[in-house]
Structure formats: C-alpha cells, structure tokens
C-alpha cells in the first residue's frame, strides 16, 4: 500500500540549542510522568474497586 515504516530524516528533531531545552529532548520526563501516571491510575482503580 505504499506505507513505509521507519524513521525518516525529516522526522529527526534538531538538537537542543539552549541548556533549558535538554529536558524535553531527554526521556527522563517521559519516564517520570509515565511512572507517576501508572501508579496513580492503579491506585485510583484499586480504590474504586475495593
């Protein structure tokens, strides 16, 4: 069907220009948010069930 999987060169994000941009280019925030969200969701679901 003409769909090509994989990452293209145009999808690459430019490297951070300033020191403040490093956080959004690193997965630390992603992992922290995902862990926080998963923990909170499990806790609220358990609280609702029991």
């Amino acid at each position: 069907m003409g769909v090509q999987l994989g990452r293209k060169a145009e999808d690459a994000t430019p490297p951070p220009q300033q020191s403040g941009e490093r956080l959004e280019h690193s997965p630390i925030l992603t992992l922290f948010l995902a862990a926080l969200a998963a923990g909170g969701w499990c806790r609220s679901s358990r609280g609702r069930a029991g």
Partner: peptide, 8 residues
Amino acid sequence: LLLHWTPK
C-alpha cells in the same frame, strides 16, 4: 509519550 520516547 512513551512510544515517542521524548516530549520533543
């Protein structure tokens, strides 16, 4: 967020 790995 997880699949793209970084917020940017």
